[in-house]
Design a protein around this nucleic acid. Structure first.
Length: 415
RNA sequence: GUGGCCGUAGCUCAAUUGGUAGAGCCCCGGGUUGUGGUCCCGGUGGUUGUGGGUUCGAGUCCCAUCGGUCACCCCA
């Protein structure tokens, strides 16, 4: 018989992992709600063209990471590799641009990328995506970034650095890219093949190299920051001032770019040394042309994606553990007569919000008590006909209780 | 897609120069105990990731493949 395993790069979230998982998810939802972001859910797959057009044919996602398939009706669909384009699609499709702007949305969803798995990188992973659509205000950039610092604070994650940059817009970036390509052409001898190729496909990313010599050579290359047009430059300056006002520390990284084509102006990443090579806790930025690119009105926007699995790794690095909810009452029964006596009480306790259990594994009396202790039951009720011997977990003396008075029973178990 | 390391019970690991699989934990039962977390006894559980090959014989050697892990690439 073939043994099945979770497909490569995917993983199960087991019950023992849920307390921590839920802590992350619930905290994220609460923080988003306080900042005025509303939940939205989009389909797990979309028209392939949506991602190709927005991420860019030259992006790694489109070139080699999409789970694309034809459905039985001949449609080309793709498991969503990122959440921003789908949310913008929904924004346009449902006329959210007619609502008061900006529209602030968030979602927590599984994303799919066909990539080689390693620590913190999975083929199916989950992201908190926060998107603020319909405003170019620098204060909104600062809000989105500060929101995430607040989430990290609530989760107890302190060891990280915020990297910030601006990559310009369609006014200033094309001219800059021309200058950069020209510089690369003049300095080919000092660069490697990889860098020369990147200059063609994705010129902004040439700075992201591990080659020391290339890196040194590139220090003399023109940087986007020096080439920003007036409006972009002013926007970036105001973003920084607002971040300062929030008291959010950041470092300017002139080589920080994004892998997707739709980004403009502000880009940022939070990096953590707890994560190994995949060190980004979150990545995001502005995408002022994305909405109109998919058929909506010109609509400035920004957002970020934060990997839930990476947050979990970072939290575990802090040594934090989350415990599941304890059992309130565990009934120990010998036979069906006693079970019939107990079942109504079990239902009654549960109806009143208590977590009550009994044995379903055919355990011996001793085994049942062991099980109760294992579940950390606060109270064990050892049934003996219509009475029960109540044993307190905290060591207080045992006492007897009647099983006949239901409401009285609930009262005493709540005490 | 590329490279390094790794792959024995649910978990953590052992198995002398290749000789035919074991321990602890967990789980179940029994004993002791205050019908309890200690202790003692017993039990369930593996075609050694999978498929080939070398050999009288392979967990141990070789090849392939799958998976894990770390790194490159890129990112969450």
């Amino acid at each position: 018989m073939k043994k099945f395993r979770a497909p490569r790069g995917t993983h199960d979230v087991l019950p023992s992992e849920f307390p921590l998982w839920n802590r992350v998810v619930h905290t994220a939802e609460e923080v988003c709600a306080r900042y005025g972001y509303e939940p939205i859910t989009t389909p797990g797959f979309e028209d392939t063209e949506l991602f190709v057009r927005t991420s860019g044919a030259g992006s790694d996602i489109v070139r080699k990471e999409m789970y694309t398939f034809d459905d039985l009706g001949g449609r080309s669909l793709t498991l969503r590799p990122e959440a921003t384009a789908p949310i913008c699609r929904a924004y346009v499709e449902h006329g959210l641009h007619r609502r008061p702007q900006p529209v602030k949305l968030y979602t927590i969803a599984a994303l799919y990328r066909y990539d080689t798995p390693q620590k913190g990188r999975y083929r199916e992973h989950h992201q908190l995506s926060v998107e603020a659509i319909g405003s170019s205000e620098p204060a909104l950039d600062a809000e989105v970034i500060q929101l995430y610092t607040e989430l990290l604070r609530r989760l107890g994650i302190e060891s990280y650095t915020i990297q910030l940059n601006s990559i310009g817009d369609r006014e200033c970036r094309p001219a800059y890219i021309e200058r950069l390509r020209a510089w690369v052409a003049d300095h080919e001898a000092d660069l490697d093949d990889e860098t020369r190729q990147k200059a063609e496909v994705s010129p902004l990313r040439i700075f992201d190299t591990k080659n020391r010599d290339v890196s040194r050579a590139l220090e003399a290359a023109p940087k986007i920051g020096e080439s920003l047009c007036g409006p972009c430059s002013e926007h970036f300056a105001r973003v920084r001032k607002f971040l300062d006002a929030y008291g959010v520390p950041y470092e300017l990284v002139s080589t920080l770019v994004r892998g997707l084509d739709y980004y403009t102006r502000t880009t940022f990443e939070f990096v953590s040394n707890a994560l190994g090579a995949q060190d980004a806790l979150v990545g995001g930025g502005r995408y002022d042309y994305l909405v109109e690119q998919i058929g909506g009105p010109p609509t400035p926007a920004l957002g970020f994606g934060a990997g839930i699995e990476r947050l979990l790794i970072a939290i575990q690095e802090t040594g934090a553990v989350a415990e599941g909810r304890e059992i309130d009452v565990f009934f120990v029964c010998h036979d069906d007569d006693e079970r019939r006596e107990v079942l109504p009480l079990l239902a009654e306790l549960r109806r009143h919000g208590l977590r009550a259990e009994l044995d379903y594994a055919g355990r011996s009396d001793k085994g049942q008590v062991t099980q109760a202790n294992r579940l950390k039951a606060k109270r064990i009720v050892i049934v003996n006909s219509v009475d029960g011997l109540v044993r307190e977990r905290d060591g207080r003396p045992d006492w007897n209780i009647s099983l006949l008075d239901r409401s009285g029973f609930v009262e005493k178990m709540r005490a």
